[in-house]
Each structure stands twice: as C-alpha cells, then as structure tokens.
Amino acid sequence: MGVRKRQSAELRKEAQKTQAFAKLLNIPSSPRKMRLVADMVRGQEVFRALGILKFSNKEAAARVEKLLRSAIANWEAKNERKAENGELYISTIFVDPAPMLKRLRPAPQGRGYRIRKRANHVTLFVDTIDNNAKTKA
C-alpha cells in the first residue's frame, strides 16, 4: 500500500473512533426499497426517527429501527452516558448495493430468464445536535 493511501486510511480510522455509527450488511431487499425508508429519517432527531420507523408499514423500517438503536447504543458506549431526548440526530445515513445473487427462472420454449436478487448495505451515523452547530459556525 502506498504512503498516501496508508495515511488517509489511518486518518479515516482515527475519525471513526470519535464518531458513533452502525452498519447493517447484506440485507436481502433491494437498495431502492431501503432508500425510501432511509429518506424518511435522514436528519431527524433519533427518538422522533424511532417513532417514525416503528409506525411505518414498510418491512425495511424494522431493520433500520434496529440499526438506529445499535447506533444510539454505540454513542452511549463511546460517551459513557445515556442519550437524552433532543440530544442526538441522524447525521448521515446511506444505502449501498451489495453483491447480487443471479438466478435463472424457467421460461417458455426452453429459455431461461435471469432473476437478480438484490441486497444492500446500510450505514448510519448519529451525532449530537450541539456538535452540528459548532462545525457550521
């Protein structure tokens, strides 16, 4: 690995030690469906987002709710205190495509239609609301 690449990787690792985040890998649903749920909660205060996810009728919402609870627990572990109401918000959430499973489905006249079983990865970062004000000022 080159020197520049190694230095940037070390900087990224140091930055992640201070940030609270959670990742969910290889979820067997399409990224498009998961992005609909991610867009509902992006930038929301965490307890409000939990309410939105709890009462959403999308299947992906239950997975994102569990991921958000994990990110909150990670923040509490790093800061050694409980999260209070109105203190945390979802600073970043993004959905990336995971490797696709390719299957064949029988079709008429001896043909086979390709079925693409999509999957996704979700990454969610939480941050304190007052931390956001410091960085913009």
Rank of each mutant, 00 (worst) to 15 (best):
G2R: 15
G2V: 09
G2T: 15
V3G: 09
A9T: 10
E10L: 14
L11D: 07
R12G: 06
K13R: 15
E14I: 12
Q16M: 13
Q16H: 05
K17A: 06
K17G: 09
Q19G: 08
K23Q: 14
L24E: 05
L25G: 08
L25N: 11
N26T: 09
I27R: 01
I27G: 02
P28A: 02
S29C: 12
S30W: 00
M34Y: 03
M34T: 12
R35Y: 01
V37D: 00
M40T: 04
R42G: 02
G43M: 05
G43D: 02
Q44S: 14
E45K: 03
F47I: 09
R48G: 13
R48S: 13
R48V: 12
G51S: 02
G51D: 00
G51I: 02
S56K: 02
S56Y: 02
N57A: 09
E59N: 11
A61V: 10
A61Y: 00
A61G: 05
A61I: 11
R63A: 14
R63W: 09
E65A: 15
K66R: 10
K66S: 05
R69Y: 05
S70T: 12
S70Y: 07
A71W: 04
N74F: 06
W75V: 11
K78R: 07
E80V: 13
E80G: 09
R81G: 02
K82P: 07
A83G: 01
E84F: 09
E84K: 15
G86W: 05
L88Q: 00
L88T: 00
L88K: 00
Y89N: 00
I90E: 00
S91K: 06
T92K: 14
I93A: 08
A98D: 13
P99A: 06
P99M: 03
P99S: 01
M100V: 15
R103T: 00
R103A: 07
R105S: 11
P106N: 14
Q109C: 06
G110F: 04
G110W: 02
R111N: 04
G112W: 04
Y113S: 13
R114P: 12
I115W: 01
R116H: 14
A119L: 04
N120G: 12
N120L: 07
L124I: 06
V126K: 01
T128C: 07
D130R: 11
N132T: 10
N132K: 14
A133S: 15
K134F: 10
K134N: 13
T135Y: 05
T135I: 13
T135C: 05
T135R: 14
K136A: 14
A137P: 04
